[in-house]
Amino acid sequence: MRKKQQLVDKQLIIEYQSGHVKALPVLVKRWHKTFCEKAYWITKDADVAKDIAQESWTTIITKLPHLKKAESFGSWALRIVYTKSLDFINETQRINKNKEVFKVSEKTKLLEDQEVDLILKQRLIHVINELPETQQAVIKLFYVQEYSIKEIGDILNVSVGTVKSRLFTAREKLKEVLIKNKNYEN
């Protein structure tokens, strides 16, 4: 049976190489399923196997006019499918490895960022605690308890202008800490 198949393939290839393009669809019909099965056997993914078979046909059709031993078409073409399947596996592994490295580096960066955030928060808390009581109160009421400037004025029994002034001064001191921290990171 195999010898008969090789003779039919040889005849089709010789016809194609002689300019009879109608021989190609017959050859494709005879081999496409086998190519898909071979690619699936390696990749274990039906969709990928179909894509590899299609890519293999592109390569085969390009090189077919130069095939010297037409009777060896089957092994020659299957070697192309096999190589493309392995290329896909290797590329997938490389991509997955890169993704894993990226995930690890992102986790490390996240931990480093959290560490920097914690240090910054500690510095800010330290600076807030060193502010005069009046500025501490305004900062805590405005940012922590989210009162409006008018409400803070009512709570502290001071004018809106005084609240704004204390808030501005406190922010400036906090901004210095943030700038120092930013310059320290760079």
Rank of each mutant, 00 (worst) to 15 (best):
K29A: 12
R30E: 02
F73Q: 01
I13D: 01
T83D: 09
L78H: 02
S56C: 01
V28K: 10
K50E: 07
I61A: 04
N129C: 05
E106K: 10
L27V: 00
Q11N: 14
I52Q: 02
Q135W: 03
A70T: 04
L118E: 12
E112V: 07
E146R: 12
R94D: 05
E146A: 09
Y184S: 09
K164Y: 08
T92N: 11
D9Q: 12
I119H: 08
N96T: 01
E172A: 09
V104M: 15
Q136E: 00
E133F: 10
K97H: 13
W76G: 00
L64C: 04
V8G: 06
E115D: 12
Q6D: 10
Q11I: 05
V144A: 10
K109I: 06
Q122V: 04
K182S: 09
N98Y: 12
V101N: 03
K38T: 04
Y184G: 08
N183D: 08
I179Q: 10
Y147K: 15
Q5G: 08
E151Y: 03
K68M: 09
I139A: 04
Y143M: 06
V104R: 15
I128A: 03
Q145G: 05
L86M: 15
Q122H: 13
I14Y: 07
A70Q: 09
I42T: 00
R94C: 12
L156Y: 00
V28T: 02
L7M: 14
L12I: 00
L78Y: 02
N183Y: 06
I119K: 13
K3S: 14
D117P: 04
L67S: 01
R2Q: 14
Y184C: 10
K121E: 06
Y143V: 00
S18Q: 10
V101E: 07
K68D: 05
R2N: 14
K164G: 04
F102N: 11
Q11A: 12
E55W: 08
G74C: 14
K22C: 14
R30C: 01
Q136R: 05
S159I: 01
L7Y: 09
V160R: 15
H66M: 09
E185T: 08
I14G: 07
V160T: 06
L178M: 13
K3P: 11
Q11F: 12
T43V: 04
A137G: 07
E106V: 05
T59Y: 15
S72E: 07
L156I: 00
E172D: 07
F88A: 05
K29H: 04
I13C: 02
I42N: 02
L24D: 00
S85L: 04
L7Q: 11
K180Q: 11
Q54M: 10
